[in-house]
Simulated scan of single mutants.
Amino acid sequence: MKSVIRMGLCVAALWGGAALAGEDWKQPGTGGSGMERERSVYRAEDRGADTGLYVLLGGGTEGYTGSNAAALNPGFAYGATVGVKPSKLLGFELNYNGALNDVDLAGPGGTADGADIVRQGGQAAITLGLTTTKLQPYVLGGVGIQNYNVRGASPVFGFVDDTSGYVPAGVGLRYNITRLITADARVDYNIPFAQDFAPDNDVGDGRYKALLQLGGTY
């Protein structure tokens, strides 16, 4: 719960700073050539959502649902995304993501020195914007593959090393702060398939991830 609250505060701080940056960016210039003055009064809302290549890096939190929620503590998550938007609404992206979690049943500190569960994965996804504005909500869906490395005594409370697939489905909010700076906050739920990592591997025994990413659109 503390990780989720911290993530919410980070998102709120980001949007506040981004809004101030956006207002400064829209202020008209007081000198220079006519072309410079035209660029200085360029209004982001007239431009709306960006198109083109984008790259994002960030971190957040990841936890588990269903029967696995009580067994695994939420932990640090990280990700890197490369995508392209051929239009203001449609996007295609490749994402590398991972997380570090402890087994709650093992007590404080888990079973190993460091994270008990190290997960790494990659996914391909499609994003669909819900508006064409600079501040753009969107939905995403795709397919991915992931590897679980269970550290310490293995198997640990029924958790074992495993490579499996998953289906990510989520929502996000992207903000083009300037022409080159992009902020992205997203939350997704990942449905496992062909997974033997945990004692329970049903649809409801998946994982959630919240990421705050910064990068650029080119």
Rank of each mutant, 00 (worst) to 15 (best):
D188R: 08
K134I: 15
V143L: 14
R186V: 03
T163F: 01
G142D: 08
R119L: 13
Q123H: 13
L140N: 05
R151G: 04
A124T: 08
T178Y: 12
Q146I: 03
R151I: 03
Y138A: 03
G121P: 08
K134E: 12
Y138E: 00
T132R: 12
K134F: 12
Q120E: 15
L135I: 09
P155L: 01
Q146C: 10
Q123I: 08
Y148K: 06
P192F: 15
L135Q: 09
R186Q: 09
G122V: 10
T127G: 03
Y166G: 13
G158A: 00
G129D: 02
L130V: 07
R119S: 13
I177F: 14
T182K: 10
R151Y: 00
G158V: 00
F197R: 06
Q123Y: 05
P168G: 08
T163D: 04
P192W: 11
A153Q: 06
G129S: 04
Y148G: 06
T131I: 11
I126K: 12
G172T: 01
R174W: 01
L173F: 02
S164A: 15
N190G: 12
Y189F: 09
V160D: 01
A153F: 00
A198C: 09
T131Q: 10
A183M: 02
G144K: 07
R174N: 04
F159A: 04
A185L: 01
T178K: 14
A169F: 09
Y148L: 05
T132A: 12
L140W: 02
V160R: 04
Y175D: 14
V139P: 05
T182G: 07
L130T: 07
Y175W: 13
T132C: 07
G142N: 07
R174A: 03
R151M: 06
R151E: 06
T127K: 05
A185Y: 04
R179Y: 13
D188A: 06
Q195T: 15
T132V: 11
L173M: 07
V171M: 07
G158N: 03
Q195G: 10
V167N: 11
D188P: 04
A125R: 09
V160A: 00
T127C: 03
R186L: 02
F193E: 15
K134R: 15
Y148E: 09
A124R: 04
P168E: 06
Y189M: 10
K134D: 15
A124I: 11
F193C: 13
F193W: 15
P192Y: 13
Y175H: 05
F193A: 12
F157G: 00
A198H: 12
F197K: 13
P192H: 14
A185N: 05
P155D: 00
D184P: 04
P137M: 04
Y138Q: 05
F197M: 13
T133F: 07
V160P: 00
R174E: 02
L140V: 03
Y166K: 04
N176F: 06
Y138G: 02
G142K: 08
A124Y: 10
F157A: 00
L128H: 10
S164M: 08
N149F: 01
N149E: 03
L130Q: 04
P168K: 07
T178A: 15
F197N: 14
T127S: 07
F157H: 01
Q136A: 00
R179I: 05
G142T: 06
G122E: 07
